[in-house]
């Protein structure tokens, strides 16, 4: 089975590391370090997350990026050879959508491959619905999936959609 490389990216706190921890069938490589700034959580990814998952007859290798812009060299490194992009954004932080778009543009300029926007934190108050997020990115609604990366029953949904788009 050809392994399929997917890059999981998006701004700080979107749930990239959480998603890979929820889904991986192999021991996760995670590189979180204590956050010294107030980012709403204790740790932040400084290098990458890595996990693997069998889904719909494919072996996925998930590479999570850091979300902070100072680690943009990792966006570049991890983009190499990616066959799909999963961009995660927080529904309750529309102020971070421009940063998310910046990351998406950056990664797509290196890896012009299909992408899905995963919308997290939909259980929080005052959220943007997936339709609104789709409008912001100018992305067809079928490429935008609302889900909770903490929930094993839902976490694979955006990746299943991504596989359909990749069409392998």
């Amino acid at each position: 089975m050809e392994p399929l490389k997917v890059i999981v990216t998006g701004p700080v706190g979107a749930g990239k590391s959480t998603l890979i921890r929820t889904l991986s069938e192999t021991e996760v490589v995670d590189t979180d370090a204590a956050a010294t700034e107030a980012i709403g959580k204790a740790t932040t990814t400084v290098a990458l997350d890595h996990g693997t998952l069998h889904l719909d007859g494919h072996l996925l290798h998930l590479f999570g990026t850091p979300g902070q812009e100072r680690f943009d060299f990792m966006w570049e490194i991890l983009s190499q050879g990616a066959l799909g992009i999963l961009l995660l954004v927080r529904a309750d932080r529309p102020d971070k959508l421009p940063a998310a778009r910046n990351i998406l543009d950056f990664v797509r300029s290196r890896a012009p491959v299909p992408y899905v926007v995963g919308v997290t934190h939909l259980d929080r108050p005052k959220v943007w619905r997936p339709e609104e997020v789709a409008l912001f990115f100018g992305t067809p609604l079928e490429q935008v999936v609302g889900f909770d990366p903490r929930d094993p029953a839902e976490a694979a949904r955006p990746l299943a959609r991504l596989l359909e788009l990749i069409g392998t």
């Binding site: 490589v29 995670d30 590189t31 370090a33 400084v46 290098a47 100072r70 680690f71 060299f73 990792m74």
Partner: peptide
Amino acid sequence: ATRLAAMAATAHGLGKR
């Protein structure tokens, strides 16, 4: 220096793993 600080953290975080 700013870039090196970020890269040092990346190298160190990955090195630990």
